[in-house]
Amino acid sequence: MTLPNPPRSRSHAGAIPLNSLRVSRWKERLLAYCFLAPSLIVFGIFLFYPLGKSVYLSLFLTDPQGRIAEFVGVDNFTAVLSSDQFYNSLWVTVKYILLTVPTGAAAALLLAALSHQKLRGMKIFRFIFSLPMAVSVGTGSVIWMILYHPTLSILNYGLSFLGIPAIQWLTDPKWALPSIAIMTVWLNLGFNYIVLLSGLQGVPDDLYESAKIDGSGSLRTFFRISLPLISPSLFFVGVVSIISAFQSFAQINILTKGGPMNSTDVLVYNIYQDAFINYRFGSGSAQALILFVLITALTILQFKFGEKKVHYQ
């Protein structure tokens, strides 16, 4: 920062003459805008400008260099909204959200509840349950690629002991999306777990004590006391998971590339293909905007209806 230090005023607040008070208020405003400027400039260039540019691009056809070729109005939108592929992608995305979000939150909640006890060795369990957070989506995808390998899969080998025939995890259109969902739940478990565990840790101990005195069993205590109190954390996990499910890309790019038979072709992957494989930036932008409207609407709905059930202290 190259801002000059504001001069030290030696007098007490009440003794400052009106004139210098006005100067100091003006200085405070200037300082505030200077403090906000770095963030605002970055947001302006890399978030708000692109948002506007996406709207603009979506009204045009572009050449492979991204240059405007022809104005087509809402043609990109009507083309997208009348294509079967878009609806397939949308349906795949919805299924993917249903497969990952509730299971991910429930698994993390269960682990957080189990490891929240004050018992010996909990630190180790807590560390293990947070571990997936250190695994990036690129690394995680390659690890699961070998677990799901068509001929070498150790998961299939394990299933063979239970008398279950081998599953073609990533090449069977029925199994590809659930397989990616399983991997994603595992990958996001660390973050969800950390949020829910710290939520549980925020519940005051004396509440548990009084529940115990009232003769409440541990399951009952969990559902009657802990769960309502950590509902803000659960809500947070829900909102964040849905947004991140909408944005899942790397695992699909690495594991299935949208296949087999488009069974894992989520919206983001479709946009990526449109824009960066087929160089149709206009159509890609149109899809991205439709996605934006969907996410925003869904998030607003969540806040409107979901947050009513959330218990804030």
Partner: peptide, 9 residues
């Protein structure tokens, strides 16, 4: 603002 919207521009 989802990342996909800003990605292309």
């Amino acid at each position: 603002i989802p990342w996909e919207v800003t990605m292309i521009p």
